[in-house]
Amino acid sequence: MSKNIIRPYGDTLNDGKMQLSFTLPVSCDALGKEAAKRLLLQAGFDEAEITSMNDLTEGFTHFIAYAVTSTSVDISKIKVKVVETPVMTMEETDAFVAEHLGRKITVVGACIESDAHTVGIDAIMNMKGYNHRYGLERYHSFNAINMGAQVSCEDLLAKAREVNADAILVSQVVTQKNIHIKNLTRLIELAEAEGLRDKMLFICGGPRISYELAIELGYDAGFGIGTYATDVASYIAITLAKRKVQE
């Protein structure tokens, strides 16, 4: 097999071992176990072994399984979209902005529509930040306005217009029934209708957001799990500096 073609690894290269767990609406007995095994075989796995099953009551059973896959992926054929700007520390970003923009960057952030979870936007924007990375409020080069939770798209855009924002940061934590997609789409559509879309950077973030999804939804960038203020600040600073040069 070529080095580019890969399979899951248990303890031997290309052994294809995978760990799985799932629930079926079935009784916790020999029948249930066989059903779980067959499901895995039909899904294309080989050597499916149910290593544990537990009765969840109400007619459900949870299974833990190991199985072997014969499928593989060719990583030389994969292209992923990722944020390509380098990540700078807070001090580096402040210095970079002073040198390349010579003014403060204004950012307006919010959890929009029904979303009441400010954990994400606070981690990026609040003074304190998260896990020893200060938030944008702490940056000398940023004027950070955190509007908090359950802000309507209209209010967010109105604020962005009022303060002549350079970037809008939107956090979406709740994703049940793809509510985050609906909310994010609504914001972009409104921004386009109001002629704001190209006047500022639109950035979204949240545990289920990826750069690729953000681009697909019409945003400039998206940040997922493990993102700190440093990532977002560097991206904004460098992108704005590039745009300034292009103007």
């Binding site: 969840l56 009551t57 109400e58 459900f60 529509e113 029904s114 979303d115 009441a116 979870h117 359950q150 709740v174």
Partner: peptide, 22 residues
């Protein structure tokens, strides 16, 4: 909730829809 109660939960909280508080 019934499944959780049968498995040993003593208390069940039904979380509210995120928009309800307002």
């Amino acid at each position: 909730a019934r499944a959780a109660a049968r498995e040993g939960a003593d208390a069940i909280a039904v979380i509210r829809s995120t928009a309800q508080s307002l």
